[in-house]
């Protein structure tokens, strides 16, 4: 059903928290997302002209890079972006078939590939560019929040997190229930001043981004001496004395 239903009482708001301070822009999460999902719920994720000059394909997660600020205080920020699983997303309400839907129990936004007519309207309605059309299958595809991992009882419990989260070498992606103020992710957001993207669109994204920490502008005391001790005085001695030193040190 395309109309948004009120979330069930006590239902979860599953989403991601992405740390723009620690993301190193390695694209590992994008690669692992592609790897998992091309065999997962929305499989396959096609690539067109993969070895040609005009390669393109369906990806659920893309890493952009921005520069913010000027001069000494400017900073390069790697910016991973996948579906934000918004609370009031027009990508769901514009869908004429009901193929685009938001689950009441955990807030995950999905596309039903059996009823999607491939009209692309939902991708026009998403300001974040989280939906990509699969021209092979003729249906819309998007991040599933790895619904086939997070509830997958065949995986060890600590592996029941999205592929992008599990693979990040910098632990810049966190997964959890953002509707529960006491969850780890909610506390992280509160601590670090996490924010939503384009709040003016009023789609109420669930995902949060953590801002880059302020850069250090002064060097503090690390406990090291300001200058190293000269090694031995040997270096400055006369060659004769050096020889004597060597003989006597035997």
């Amino acid at each position: 059903m395309t109309s948004l239903t009120a979330p069930l009482p006590g239902s979860k708001k599953l989403g991601l928290v992405i740390d723009l301070d620690t993301c190193v822009g390695c694209h590992a999460c994008a690669v692992n997302c592609k790897e998992w999902n091309t065999g997962g719920h929305s499989a396959p994720l096609p690539d067109f002209d993969p070895y040609g000059a005009n390669v393109s394909g369906v990806w659920f997660n893309r890493i952009h890079t921005f520069e913010a600020g000027e001069g000494d205080s400017s900073r390069t920020v790697h910016f991973p972006k996948s579906c934000l699983h918004c609370e009031t997303p027009a990508c769901v309400t514009v869908c004429p078939t009901g193929a685009s839907f938001k689950r009441a129990e955990d807030g995950i936004v999905l596309v039903n590939p059996d009823t999607c007519i491939g009209c692309k309207l939902c991708s026009w309605a998403c300001p974040y560019g989280a939906r990509e059309f699969d021209a092979d299958e003729g249906v819309m595809k998007k991040c599933t929040l790895c619904i086939d991992r997070i509830y997958n009882e065949n995986l060890a419990e600590n592996e029941r997190v999205p592929a992008c989260v599990s693979t990040c070498p910098a632990s810049a992606r966190h997964f959890g229930d953002l509707g529960d103020p006491s969850s780890d992710v909610s506390r992280l957001v509160a601590e670090r001043g996490g924010f939503a993207l384009m709040p003016e669109m009023e789609y109420a994204p669930v995902n949060r981004y953590l801002p880059p920490r302020a850069a250090k502008t002064a060097v503090g005391c690390t406990g090291a001496k300001a200058e190293l001790d000269r090694p031995a005085d040997a270096a400055v001695l006369h060659p004769l004395l050096r020889w004597m030193d060597k003989v006597l040190s035997r």
Binding site: H27, V77, F133, L197, P211, P212
Partner: peptide
């Protein structure tokens, strides 16, 4: 507002996620 980085000042685009145009760029 798209990146939420406005507090640091002007935000400039540095690098695209991919070398060729994807669906989003062709369509939108």
């Amino acid at each position: 507002s798209a990146t939420g980085l406005g507090a640091r000042g002007k935000v400039r685009f540095l690098d695209a996620p991919h070398t060729e145009e994807n669906y989003l760029q062709k369509e939108m």
